[in-house]
Design a binder for these strands. Sequence first.
DNA 1: CTGAAAGCGCTTACAG
DNA 2: CTGAAAGCGCTTACAG
Lengths: 347, 347
Amino acid sequence: MAGTSLKKIAAEAGVSVTVVSLVLNNKATEARIAKDTQQRILAIAKRENYVPNRLASALKSKHTKILAIVVPFTPVGFFVELIYHIEQYAITKGYQAMVINTFNDEKKEQESLSLYRSGLFDGMFIASLNKTSSRMGVYQAMEKASFPFVFVDRYAEGIKADIISSDHFKASYDMTTKMIGTGKQNILLLNRSGQAVNSTAKLREDGYIAAMKDHTLEPWIQSFILTSGESEHDTNLAEVLKSLPQKPEAIFLHSGFYMPHLIKAYGESSFRESKSEFMTVDNFSFTQDLIVQKNLLEHVVGHFLITVQDIRQIAKIACDTLLAHIEDKDGSAEHKTIHVPTYSFWG
Amino acid sequence: MAGTSLKKIAAEAGVSVTVVSLVLNNKATEARIAKDTQQRILAIAKRENYVPNRLASALKSKHTKILAIVVPFTPVGFFVELIYHIEQYAITKGYQAMVINTFNDEKKEQESLSLYRSGLFDGMFIASLNKTSSRMGVYQAMEKASFPFVFVDRYAEGIKADIISSDHFKASYDMTTKMIGTGKQNILLLNRSGQAVNSTAKLREDGYIAAMKDHTLEPWIQSFILTSGESEHDTNLAEVLKSLPQKPEAIFLHSGFYMPHLIKAYGESSFRESKSEFMTVDNFSFTQDLIVQKNLLEHVVGHFLITVQDIRQIAKIACDTLLAHIEDKDGSAEHKTIHVPTYSFWG
DNA sequence: CTGAAAGCGCTTACAG
DNA sequence: CTGAAAGCGCTTACAG
């Protein structure tokens, strides 16, 4: 191979591989290596642009400084930002991150989790599907092997691990309560149905239901589905709106991801003359997506209420938590759920 | 370690490590391993949920089946999709992908490229910054070591490697020509200035200028900059619009990424009463972002012309090209530029 | 059909 | 202050 190895540097510097390794890993002082030996080695390494073979060092040292981020589906706004912020923050701690998509598929999630044994990763961030059956075995094996992992945003019920997320229940409860406070009563929750039902969606629904009941209002929930049209993510929201027995006074969309579809469907519906209020939980801490949503909503509907998650903070805390597990290896510390505050505003 | 190793399986099956390795790597037939030996080994591996240590196998075999995607900045629509499609396609070919952000920083790009020697990656997709000075050395070393890499979307001038991208010049030329065809003459190009000027932006500008000149029109170019406001990506587009000596008949925004900002600025400008035409190159093959853009544009401006890139196709071709390099190792095949068609439409 | 052995490029006690 | 040596968990000629 063309690459410079420790061996070559050692040969040129006229010392043993041990010394080179020590110097290049900043252990020269502890090992009391002679100053001029150090400098000679450093000079050669620099000139040859030496890059250590990470495979070899990891095989021996048992850590790769690489973290896996296991998410259902990359191109969703929330995950885009989560990944980005984790990557950026992890770098400052000397770690790299690698993304693994599970494509909302249980088998794929199981495979991804199994990689904890590949030696490639020091730990994992996991946004889990909620249906646990087939993957419980892997999770348990990970626990038993005390492989470090944390849940971000979405967790698998019944698995003991730290969870870092927004307080989806509270965010949803508060937002619904605010809306009720403006005098609205017929508040419709639009929920995506099907296999993708996850802990987050569940908590948001629960929050909405609780708020409605606490105000002696009847929860009103309609599901919509993904249809396979030209764009890979069409919905049947237009039909759902059409089939409604009455016009809702406000619509709570469970995820901002589908807002463009809802707005499109709404614009084509018979409701469009007299505007509804809209509300959604969204997640744009950083890209211009928030501007997009605001612009869209302002032009199509009158008012809207939006809840924003602090994804950067979620990333930071998740990273710190995971690194604590990796670097402490204390094992059976208590498992905690950390809720990162959200904020909401009217537009 | 808790993990099952080849050694353990070998011990339990009563055979040598060699045989286990052969069987588990589907080389049993060539090596003429006895059927029942095979089955015994397979059964144990399955029961123990054996996962090979990728570090060890890669160290020996010299390939990791991991590809690096080196991009300036993950959360941009184009890259989000590019990454996603590469990941998804690479999986079907037995490869995984790992993203490395360069954050538009030359030094960071240099570091990232240097990882070609870490042994972690079999090849790299690179969307390069254009200023090449400080990184030329690494690129040349990669060439010399015949490490497999391809440029996607953005390339470094002067480096010989395959380039896979949309034909940005042509897309821009055609779009401008179309706009001129509707009778517009004062067509303003809004270009982000500063360090981030890359090959793509350059080609789009060139295409615009060529089209204008070919129709004996004067190119009209204004730069805008990123300002550090609350949202990390504010622009000074409002001021730029305000300072214009006259109202443009059409505005060509060099990247759809900034369209929300332009629309916001436009809405606040004195032009908003009499609408301009807008046009941009965009990249949304798959998420609902295209819907978002369409909705936004329809509500704010009259007409718009949009060019869409086929990112999935770019990803596929880039992947096939890179894998050809990896698996052939032919070395000095000719370097080619592959242009993936774009399409444009009026809205 | 199967096994002993070398070696990938590092790290890290241990001996001096 | 420095070196010889074992070993991380695999793969792969080679010998039989």
